[in-house]
Design a protein around this nucleic acid. Structure first.
Lengths: 116, 116
DNA sequence: CATACACTTCGTCATCTGGCGAATTATAGG
DNA sequence: CCTATAATTCGCCAGATGACGAAGTGTATG
């Protein structure tokens, strides 16, 4: 129950849900998520910390950047099911679709600055 | 997104999650849920109102009692997926299992007072 | 119709949450 | 080294949330 509630609370904020949706298919660093959500770095960082504690996302440091991605297939059941819930529910959502477009733009611009 | 967030917020409280789990397989009235959760009637009523607004549960009045059950199969996708998420995640959960036992006792005692 | 019971609504209060900016840590590059 | 950039941590504040009791609504039953 504890783990389930951690996941449920992690998904009870729209910003965090948008992060999970954006990470579906992409690996993104914090500054890219900041640009996507248009929130203060400290706010985004806190959201990521919460999602990470719930095991929904994982972080990987590369140089100055920390890249976040969704949990692997070997994550707990409640986490995998949570991710699938978000994916299936928001597959046609206008907000998520717009985020997806903007994420593509952001990732495309990456080549200018970094290669990893 | 609006509907999804309503469902997500509805599941961000342990009491409400326990209600959803308890309603899996049973139809229960408010006073039975009050006994199960050991919370004040006004608190339980508010939780039920929130779950109902998120379309996760439906209410049916019968005499003095209001019976609540999970949403039908024709409910929105995000709701059905949410219910399935709870069910699959808590199928082996100690808290949910204990609630399930207590629910059975509560329902068994129903015969004394009411037949509908 | 008066009483009891089931439930809801309303007002209140302590706590939690999400937001920010300032300060801190870590790393890359001049 | 010193600076710039990426990210995190900390402290703070406004607003949301969950708990309760009191009061109100509705329904069966004596």
């Amino acid at each position: 129950m504890r783990d389930f509630m951690a996941a449920a609370k992690a998904l009870s904020d729209e910003g965090r849900v948008r992060i999970v949706a954006a990470l579906t298919g992409h690996e993104l660093c914090v500054c890219e998520l900041i640009e996507l959500l248009q929130l203060a770095p400290s706010t985004v960082s806190k959201h990521l910390s919460l999602l990470k504690q719930a095991r929904i996302i994982e972080g990987r440091r590369s140089g100055r950047w920390t890249y976040y991605r969704l949990a692997d297939d070997d994550a707990p059941v409640e986490v995998l099911a949570a991710i699938e819930w978000v994916r299936s529910s928001l597959s046609d959502d206008p907000v998520a679709e717009r985020d997806s477009e903007r994420t593509s733009e952001i990732v495309a611009r990456r080549a200018d600055a970094c290669s990893d």
